[in-house]
Amino acid sequence: MNWSLLVQLLANGLIVGMLYGVVAMCFVLIYKSTQVVNFAQGEFLVLGAWVCLWFITDMQMPFIVAFLFTLVFMTLFGIMIQVVILRPLIGEPVVSVIMVTIGLSIFLQALMNWIFGNSAERFPQVFETESVNVAGLNVESAYLMSLVMSVLIMGGFYLFFRFSKYGLAMRATAFNQQTAQSLGISVRQVFALAWAISAIVSGVAGIIIGMVNSVSSSLAIIGIKVFPAVILGGLDSIVGAVIGGIIIGLLENFAEFVDGQFLNWGNLFTIAPFYVLIIILMIKPYGLFGTKDIERI
């Protein structure tokens, strides 16, 4: 048994899992407040990463400025998607809305291939040191940043939904749209806000993952990995999304360890989360924290 490898992998799993949790939160946010299952979540990540990279390399901006510009871009993008594509679909059957988000995903993939090209590109080095040593573990700087960002985003979500006026308004809308309207809350604004927040946070996650690996359309795989996390946590629970994400991240890396040490199948890493997805759907279809009566698709 190679214990240090296991610990290293689990640390990686935790960090990646937090990131999954962040993306899963975005997914749940949209589902909860607008009842839309967003299959294009992964493309949001890729878009954020590409746009940030474009600002850095083509516009010659320093990383921080490019990062801020990306946030602005993603805000506008999120609002635009909601207003142009999803607002006309309010009241349409769930299946139509799902078809539209799948279509959006394919459209965005093609659009990004066209604009940014097919090949993977690396972020220029942002941190001075490649990796730092934390308690005897070799952790990449980008991973550390990822951990810090994930915690910040989660904390931000908590404060936003607990204390801010608009956070409360979003929760009210998720609870009952008509009740929210009777309180003077504009449901349209809440929907646009949900998509904006989701796009911003996904963009940030995309940049982080792009810095760790490299930017290419394969980043969208995170959008698929989010499903096991979300189903595990419960489709309508933000806390569940975070916990589901962390569990999936840990499990993935544990599967990698078991596979590498004993089984040598070579692909357990990718597949393990989906076994969990199937098992969860069989034994606890509403997830760990989900509301029992929500509609399944």
Binding site: K165, L168, A169, R171, A172, F175, N176, Q178, T179, S182, L183, G184, I185
Partner: peptide, 24 residues
């Protein structure tokens, strides 16, 4: 301001949060 039939309290929020939402 309409107080709807069946009260329509936001059940998964606290009393204070419900009141704050009244002043939205």
């Amino acid at each position: 301001f309409q107080v709807m039939e069946g009260r329509r309290i936001i059940q998964d929020m606290t009393v204070l949060e419900n009141l704050k939402l009244g002043a939205f």
